[in-house]
Design a protein around this nucleic acid. Sequence first.
DNA 1: CCTTGCGTTCGAGCGCGCTCGAATCCCTAA
DNA 2: TTAGGGATTCGAGCGCGCTCGAACGCAAGG
Lengths: 169, 169
Amino acid sequence: MATDDLMSRALAALGEDGAPSADVIHALADADAVPGPLPIAEAAAYLDVSPHTLRYYERAGLVEVGRDAAGYRLYDAAALRRLVFVTRMRLSGMPMRDVQHYIALADAGKETEPERLDLLLEHRDTIRRRIRELNLSLAATEYKIATYGGATGPDVTDPDVTDPDVQDD
Amino acid sequence: MATDDLMSRALAALGEDGAPSADVIHALADADAVPGPLPIAEAAAYLDVSPHTLRYYERAGLVEVGRDAAGYRLYDAAALRRLVFVTRMRLSGMPMRDVQHYIALADAGKETEPERLDLLLEHRDTIRRRIRELNLSLAATEYKIATYGGATGPDVTDPDVTDPDVQDD
DNA sequence: CCTTGCGTTCGAGCGCGCTCGAATCCCTAA
DNA sequence: TTAGGGATTCGAGCGCGCTCGAACGCAAGG
């Protein structure tokens, strides 16, 4: 997805260790300084997705977009704010239907706030679980790398054992 | 045994966040103490995938599986070890084609070890990048949660602002 | 013998999230 | 005036990773 680039740029502003600074968080979360009405190409560039994807999101009911006299889409600040939120949620792995659900709640009015908060809390837990899973995968992969090189392998001194998982011959 | 080291490092990487999912624990299943020849249902249970998936992996060239007199699949220790590796790589997000590539290299012989190691190193970097991405998404999500509840929100004291990303009305 | 239940092969189908193509329309610059 | 580039709608197609269904085979129990 094109949004990988977005994340890469965000990560570039990040330290080595992966602990996000307050600035970066705020930049990711800040929805105030959004540009004025943009045509689709510029909105797509701003959001780092394709125009196709923007139309798709609109068809999916995630955002309403106004038109100019010629029928061309014009993304105003509200639409852009919403799409910032949508792309961020998508980027963090929230499925389309959950984003749709959230948006439907938001459109339904203020009284759905508690339910929306629940969705966010669930999503947060999902992200945390995924991070833990990836940490396990990382540990397993690093272990395997260590046993390969042998240089920093923990206790791999048996020359016969080259790859216990995937035998060569 | 080597696996103790794997587990301790995996657990160390886990930190505060609590119990890992059963899936992931299974992904770390010991590759040394693999059971004897198993029919497909038991192999599937052992690996925590469906028999369908095991047949699919075989069709995809990821593993060769022997048969009994009746033509039924029998997963021996070598096949199971390989499938433990395969499922672990899949679980950690490695695409099928990369797993296929790795397996093809392993089948090609010992001289492909450096290239396999490269693949693992790339994969490790991919996992690390994904963890960083998820940490960013987590931070953004927690920020949004905080601004929702208002309890621990950093500088959100304006009562008019309920959701800057997704307006209610 | 017949049912039950698990196995086999093969190809088709699905859910997801885009991504693309065709036909048409609008605006601008030469 | 005409060519171009980019916009529109609509539905279809794609890449991934399974997942399933049809039609059939084998083995054991009642």
